[in-house]
């Protein structure tokens, strides 16, 4: 294992149940790690600790085996960051902002920045103050990736982007992963995390309720969730008596939802052949569905 980020027993209590509590997780080199949770669940607080902006009350966070509070400035040589709130320094145009940041970072070669500017279709000569939310976000993305940092922290990195640009960001994340970069991203857009992340942590009320390996969610698809509505009640009750794994019955609509492994699918068709079916639909197993289940489970406890 090539551990690159470690969060150990991290606690920051802001009172009234807000904050983050006893967070433990590690991210390996070359991994894309997602953080998901509703607003106020603690995603930003966690990332701010990694950036060394917040001092842990208990526990610690480290990047490349260095404490991220103590070695905050030194670690910035290896870390790119998109803050959750976009507010630029007092410079005129997008390009002035990139030049300023490049000067801080000691970057002389602008080819990477230009490549990103083109890729995201950004008008770098536009005035920062006049930029739309999406344009500002694109500027923040260019800034975070232009230094070719080994580690990128994205706090809601796709906020304000149109769907096309959102998927461009997802592609960029995948490409960076291919280059061996490590990416730690928070989001509430499941689609974004689903297609790019290796693992996703669920945060609720400042605690991690689960960390899933995306492969297991993607792999789950060999068992499918299928919903069938029957035209008559007799067929419906007939169907219920069959040996299928029925997970939900909605009697008022004559609907049944079953979980069925791919190998048994023909048996289902055999049974349905002699019945009056209104529709049949497959519900894809998504990160979102998984999250909702987990979230509700945690609620019930």
């Amino acid at each position: 294992m090539n551990e690159i980020i470690r969060i150990s027993n991290l606690t920051k209590d802001y009172g009234e149940g807000r904050g983050i509590f006893d967070i433990n997780l590690t991210v390996n080199k070359g991994e894309v790690f997602g953080l998901v949770g509703i607003n106020g669940s603690g995603k930003t607080t966690l990332i701010r600790h990694l950036m060394g902006f917040l001092k842990p009350q208990k526990g610690y966070t480290s990047i490349m085996d260095k404490d991220s509070w103590r070695y905050a400035s030194e670690l910035k040589k290896h870390v790119g960051y998109i803050p959750g709130e976009i507010a630029f320094p007092e410079v005129k145009r997008g390009i002035d902002f990139f030049k300023l940041q490049a000067e801080y970072l000691g970057i002389r070669d602008f080819s990477r920045a230009n490549e990103l500017i083109q890729r995201f279709n950004l008008d770098a000569d536009a005035k920062l103050k006049r930029m739309s939310k999406g344009m500002k976000q694109k500027s923040a993305i260019v800034n975070a990736f232009m230094a070719n940092s080994d580690i990128i922290l994205l706090d809601e990195g796709s906020t304000g982007l149109d769907p096309l640009m959102q998927s461009e960001l997802t592609n960029l994340v995948k490409e960076e992963k291919q280059k061996g970069k490590t990416i730690f991203m928070s989001s509430h857009i499941f689609n974004e995390l689903e297609s790019s992340c290796d693992r996703v942590a669920f945060l609720k009320n400042g605690r991690i309720i689960d960390i899933v390996d995306m492969n297991t969610i993607r792999g789950n698809e060999s068992v499918k969730e299928i919903k069938i509505e029957f035209i008559g009640e007799s067929d419906f009750s007939n169907f219920l008596s069959r040996p299928f794994n029925i997970i939900r019955e909605q009697t008022e609509f004559n609907q049944a939802t079953i979980l069925i492994p791919d190998k048994d699918i023909n048996e289902l068709f055999n049974v349905l052949q002699n019945m009056n079916v209104r529709f049949i639909t497959q519900k894809p197993r998504t990160l979102e569905a998984y999250f909702k289940d987990k979230y509700n489970d945690a609620e019930a406890v």
Binding site: K77, P83, E85, Y104, L105
Partner: peptide
Amino acid sequence: GSMAYILSTPV
């Protein structure tokens, strides 16, 4: 929030 950009560099 603009301080974030200065402090995301090695300063």
